[in-house]
């Protein structure tokens, strides 16, 4: 039986500012001008769009001001797999079933306490209902991703310094420097790293670093429809992650390995590893 206490409801939209330019009106004007036969406008038209991509803060992005982390509320995950699909699209991850920056696992614990875990295609296509429903004691989904450990074993073992923690707490791979020895993949206790089949280097979740520097949230957080993924700062109070950590008992995965993950789980079952 699953939890029958907490009905899950979508959270309030986050109050991030919208760009000041009303682009739709601009496009409409441009269209009219086009109709009047002015091809130059077409080229100019893209300018404000490009400018809008870059919020004012980007030029001044200072990694020292940030330390990123993620919260995951197991009780809110509906296993739709949109995060998995979004991650693959955003980060050009191969679309096969063997390479994932993030994936969703389903745990089904039956009345005898036996645990069955599956993750068909990483949860990319969602989950079909489990076979024997009547025997379920409890069942839930667990999104997984790189934990961006504060004490990352993958970084420790890299022989050449091709993987590293950034000042803002993200573990990245330098794909132009990685020699492809795969020691980091062996050293990761979470199975979060994979070997890129065409680039022949180690690959992993970047926490959508290219989005962070633009002031955006990672793609998986953007598309999570139930707010099960909470993104924010580990050390600053006024962020959604800080509220998440205040309101929940949080746990990390495999704490006995002292990797000190920065992905925090709320309502995590003891069977998850």
């Amino acid at each position: 039986m699953t939890r029958d206490e907490e009905p899950s409801v979508a959270p309030a939209d986050d109050p991030r500012p919208t760009p000041a330019v009303d682009r739709r009106r601009f496009v409409e004007d441009a269209l009219k001008a086009c109709a009047a036969g002015c091809p130059l406008i077409l080229a100019v038209m893209r300018l404000p769009a490009a400018a809008a991509q870059r919020p004012a803060g980007e030029a001044a992005y200072d990694p020292a001001e940030h330390l990123y982390g993620m919260g995951i509320d197991i009780q809110k995950c509906i296993g739709c797999g949109r995060c998995v699909a979004a991650c693959k699209a955003e980060n050009d991850v191969p679309l096969d079933g063997y390479h994932f920056n993030t994936w969703v696992e389903r745990y089904v614990i039956d009345e005898d306490g036996d645990v069955t875990v599956d993750s068909p295609n990483g949860g990319f296509d969602g989950f079909p209902p489990p076979a024997a429903e009547s025997e379920i004691r409890r069942t839930f989904f667990v999104p997984k991703l790189c934990n961006h450990c504060a004490n990352p074993p993958c970084v420790q073992v890299c022989p050449v310094g091709a993987t590293f923690s950034t000042p803002d707490g993200v573990v990245l791979v330098d794909e132009q420097y990685c020699i492809g020895c795969r020691y980091c993949i062996q050293a990761c206790p979470y199975g979060a790293r994979w070997f890129h089949p065409t680039k022949h280097v180690a690959a992993k979740c970047t926490l959508c670093y290219h989005r962070l520097v633009k002031g955006l949230v990672p793609a998986c957080v953007e598309v999570c429809p139930t707010g099960a993924r909470i993104f924010g700062e580990v050390e600053q109070r006024p962020t959604p992650l800080a509220r998440f950590m205040r309101m929940n008992d949080v746990q990390v995965l495999k704490p006995h390995l002292n990797t000190r993950p920065k992905v925090y789980y709320a309502n995590l079952d003891g069977e998850v590893r």
Partner: peptide, 15 residues
């Protein structure tokens, strides 16, 4: 190695 041509890096910048 995925990139055998980069193996010299292990002498250049050993971690």
């Amino acid at each position: 190695l995925g990139h055998p041509e980069r193996s010299y890096e292990i002498f250049l910048t050993p971690n």
